[in-house]
Design a protein around this nucleic acid. Structure first.
Lengths: 271, 271
DNA sequence: CGCCATATTGAACACAATCAACGCGTGTGG
DNA sequence: CCACACGCGTTGATTGTGTTCAATATGGCG
């Protein structure tokens, strides 16, 4: 399976001005972010927007007119149920796109909110479509971004349904570090711009469980809390963190029949 | 929030030959599937492929060359971890596309497998891109399909992390019925072409829990087992089923601060 | 200063996982 | 034909992880 950083959206460009090979899975090393942003900058109108922590890029229910590319900062997407409770469903960094969730219905399905100061580029959806029709590379870039979001959500589903609490938290931090890694930022320390409750919401845990899990990770020495603030952590052992995040079955294992028996029980066969 | 059937991919077409309005969220009644398939049929080369239960449309790791549109049947997508365990991450019906997960890396990230007899249309990705560059409606259709998949995965995440076992199973059945509904099929009975283990895997539960949950649903009278086979169920009370599937907090509730306090704790502020 | 939000930690409980037994239908081989 | 194994599903008993309820500590802010 693909072990490449799984939080890249704008990246992995067979984007070569001409047509993507698509089949050959062209293996290129580490494509700088500049390519993608350059392409956007040259080919389609956009407006930049600065956001501060808590500012919303868009809100669920609003009519979709723009898509947004994250230029800097961290953003969350939160889904709201009919009864008003919110579930965080995504975490996004530089290069990721926001707003894909709204294309189907013409209205955003989530809130998108800045977790810290950041900048997004707003691009009118119609303008983007028109530009993409002329520029195969641009169209492919969009598809890559959507595809990446789909793949990452699959990962999240997998983690949610198979990992025990400690591993989920370890995995959460580890993923964050991977994202920083892929963007050339330091990975020996981290500031989580989220409360324990938010992290818990994202991971399907209670805030107490998150707190305990982080304490246990600190005990085991894979993370260390900054003295000043428990949201700042340093990472003494990235490898150890990784190990814990992929951990043991012992829970919802189901090594079981992922491959399906290929024949319907005969008792079901008769119409 | 949008209460429309959430498993429609090809649908909701402001597809009007010209440009989608995108912002206005044009409200059209019940768009027949034919429109989408007609558009495909006219505009891009495709080959039809029949599958029987257990056949794979594609397998994870294969180079992506085609995308697939489901013409009939039910399909699952299964993600495999490094250690070989599989996690079912998606359930797809007529009109849904398969293969989006592979665009980013050029290789499929999942296995896609038929759950019963079905037909898919295979479309070469490159050919699709070229056709879409000429036909805005086609491009928009693809985006709608991807967007729909993203939105549905968000729903799944939400359900996995907030619902207790019985509600997950009820929701699973209810979603399946919604999908049948949107495709003009009968919704008073259902044949689940999956083992309890598979359902459990999809829902993040063990097979025993699924079995018990279904027994409890039957006790409450919202589903009834066919005498011949426990995979065949009839639905005496669709409304009751829906009610149970949206059920109570009492678990990972976190009505908590979905909206973020907007200011970073000052102890974190100093660099 | 008190109040509030955040975070940590403890104790009791509940829900789902685990281990285990059993029934049933099917296909296999004597 | 029957005995048998096997896959699937159900149900019971027990265990364990994570939730819930509660108390405490801290820092910011009016």
């Amino acid at each position: 399976m693909n072990t490449a950083p799984q939080t890249l959206d704008l990246v992995h460009p067979p984007i070569k001005a001409s047509m993507p090979s698509a089949s050959g899975a062209s293996e290129q090393p580490a494509p700088s972010w500049h390519e993608g942003f350059d392409l956007l900058e040259r080919s389609v109108a956009h407006t930049r927007r600065l956001l501060r922590p808590g500012d919303t890029v868009y809100q669920g229910g609003q009519g979709l007119s723009c898509l947004y590319v994250i230029h800097s900062g961290a953003f969350k997407t939160v889904n709201f149920t009919a009864d008003g409770r919110g579930q965080m469903v995504g975490l996004h960094f530089r290069g990721s796109w926001l707003g894909f969730d709204g294309i189907e219905s013409g209205r955003y399905a989530c809130d998108a909110t800045a977790l810290d100061v950041g900048e997004v580029w707003a691009i009118r959806y119609e303008a983007l479509l028109q530009a993409a029709a002329r520029l195969p590379a641009l169209m492919h870039m969009i598809h890559v971004a959507m595809s990446g979001q789909i793949a990452r959500e699959c990962e999240n589903l997998l983690n949610l349904s198979t990992l025990p609490a400690d591993a989920r938290v370890a995995n959460f931090i580890s993923d964050w570090l991977d994202a920083m890694d892929g963007r050339g930022l330091r990975t020996d320390q981290l500031r989580l711009p989220m409360s324990r409750a938010e992290i818990g919401n994202y991971l399907g845990l209670t805030l107490e469980t998150v707190s305990r899990a982080m304490s246990r990770l600190a005990e085991r020495g894979v993370i260390r809390f900054d003295e000043r603030c428990r949201r700042d952590i340093s990472i003494p052992s990235r490898a150890g963190l990784r190990a814990l995040s992929r951990c043991e079955p012992g829970h919802a294992a189901h090594a079981g029949p992922a491959r399906w028996p290929a024949s319907v029980p005969a008792s079901c066969r008769a119409s």
